[in-house]
Design a protein around this nucleic acid. Structure first.
Lengths: 258, 258
DNA sequence: CGTGAAGTTGAGTATGCTCAACGGTGGTGG
DNA sequence: CCACCACCGTTGAGCATACTCAACTTCACG
């Protein structure tokens, strides 16, 4: 549906930076944090910064898995398709999330930008060489992957066993949780994805998502002016509805939204 | 629902073996394969073999994640529960599968034996020390985890977007695929889990699973005498129904059933 | 100011769920 | 040895949740 993407090249954006990785604001959050200030240059040598515009595709499910990415800003969705076009979004990814992990030779899913997104691109082969050299990075990656796995299991519980209302409540709480982790002001959350995307993420139709939003609103749990901004008025009621499975208490490095 | 399990101790079962890991038949398939015959003794020093009987629980979702397990024989199910008892089985695990990967301090799911199951138990702390010492093991684990992740995404597609018939067809094909990988005679597959387990795995009710079996049978795709043994008469038709998403062509080290 | 995309709402429908009954099988105990 | 019972799986009838189809509003963008 969406075409090829323009790749904006690395340093050229805001002038040449000597060692961008060293200055990276999210470095502690991801694989990069496993390297100290001395070794970080090695990573720096293989990264390129890329940009995908709203609605553009970073890679398709069938593409050779040539790169691993870390999001520095924006929002991506990853999804799988059935032959007749039915779509399941398996995750929304934000700043500091990684994507493209595939130790098969092809990606297991397609990746498309929900909003303009900037990513660090690591060539798979070169990164694997670095992983072999710096086991601390590999360990970090394993932990991240294991968090992803836990999040995937939460999502299976949601898809297989929750009602429409419970699904939407869980989704909003996860968004709230993630926003909180990143230090955003509480009550209002940004919902950058369309109702269609939410539907394909929750295993529902657009209409059911819309109706569920309305129901939550009429129950006084949330308020909506702009569909892309939702105010969480009653997080406790929402948690009750969601089934309280959202690990809403502890401050894990949740790989939540996938 | 199920109580505590009896742990049958290691070598005592068939006499003392000097170095069981070295002689292990599935060693190549799992993390253990990353160590050569010299280093395998290190693993051997921390393993214990445990056994869980049919219907017994190995660990619960809330337990501290003290161990990682590899199945040497049998079948386990792992599941998550909602407060009101609704259950989602997130995977069935067989010989050579691992479970208990959780780099949080608690398991993300409960694990119960579908049939009598024997496992190798690795204490998490000791294993992590070994992982640090032998990066090849960590690499192996990362690849396995990344395969799990791909399988989890397949399952999300199934749960969110497939119909009852498609779900069951996909499930049977995955069982067939796994049996084929382990060199079992083709047409008839073993289905050790109950209809209730299948329902909780596919996000359906028992009745719908049963009706879907009947429909597949009446369509001539499968034959059933014993509910625990299913003959796949028309794998192609089944694949067509399933959506042909099952990576049924290539011989990946599929971490399929979860 | 026209057009199209996105979201909401309504009416009717269908897929899968609930409730219920029944048959087969395996384990237990009289 | 066989009667009994519990469990599992199957089938039927009715129902509800979420889907389909459709109309309408709003808003962004020419």
């Amino acid at each position: 549906m969406t075409g090829v993407k323009p790749l904006i090249e690395p340093q050229e954006r805001d002038g040449v930076i000597a060692n961008p990785c060293a200055a990276c604001g999210i470095r502690d959050l991801v694989v990069c944090g496993a390297l100290d200030s001395h070794d970080i240059g090695r990573l720096n040598a293989i990264v390129r910064q890329v940009h995908v515009g709203h609605g553009e595709t970073l890679f398709f499910e069938t593409d050779p898995a040539a790169n691993l990415y870390v999001i520095t800003d924006g929002c991506m969705k990853v999804y799988k398709l059935l032959a007749d076009g039915r779509r399941q979004i398996t995750g929304f990814l934000f700043r500091s999330d990684f994507l493209g992990l595939a130790f098969q030779d092809r990606y297991a899913y397609s990746a498309e930008a929900v909003a303009g997104t900037t990513l660090c691109r690591f060539p798979k082969q070169k990164l694997e060489a670095l992983l072999a050299e710096f086991p601390a990075m590999e360990e970090r990656l394993l932990k991240l992957a294991s968090n992803e796995l836990a999040a995937a299991q939460d999502q299976m519980l949601l898809l297989g066993r929750k009602t429409a209302g419970e699904k939407l409540a869980s989704f909003l709480l996860t968004l709230l949780h993630r926003a909180a982790l990143k230090g955003q002001p509480h009550p209002e959350i940004s919902v950058p994805m369309s109702r269609a995307d939410i539907a394909d993420y929750l295993g529902l139709t657009i209409e059911t998502v819309s109706r569920s939003f309305t129901k939550l609103r009429k129950s006084g749990f949330i308020s909506i002016d702009d569909p892309k901004r939702v105010v969480i008025d009653d997080p406790d009621a929402l948690a009750e509805l969601a089934g309280i499975d959202e690990d809403f208490s502890d401050d894990l490095p949740t790989a939540s939204l996938r």
